[in-house]
């Protein structure tokens, strides 16, 4: 990657990020507050910022991970978690 502004994909949409950004920081910058269906019935979203509340868990390359702890990486596929129940 030589491009200075790198990006990952959020549900297929390109999200640019800055060095040392977490996925949550990049989504916040892009104005994404609702992360869609979460682990339980409440939608995923940023809340505590310290990896404790688990509210911001999204699918990172297929593995559930806290958006507030996981560093953004170029080309990464980040998605809403598949709902575990309807």
């Amino acid at each position: 990657m030589t491009d200075r502004s790198e990006s990952f994909f959020w549900n297929g949409q390109r999200i640019s990020f800055e060095p040392a950004d977490t996925i949550a920081a990049a989504l916040e910058r892009a104005g994404v507050t609702d992360f869609g269906a979460g682990q339980g019935p409440c939608n995923a979203r940023y809340f505590c910022g310290i990896g404790a509340c688990q509210a911001c868990v999204v699918s990172v390359g297929g593995t559930p991970a806290e958006a507030c702890l996981t560093p953004a990486q170029a080309g990464q596929q980040v998605r809403t978690l598949k709902p575990v129940r309807q």
């Binding site: 507050t33 992360f35 995923a44 809340f47 505590c48 910022g49 310290i50 509340c53």
Partner: peptide, 8 residues
Amino acid sequence: PGVVTVGG
């Protein structure tokens, strides 16, 4: 979504 902790 949009409700966060102050620390967060």
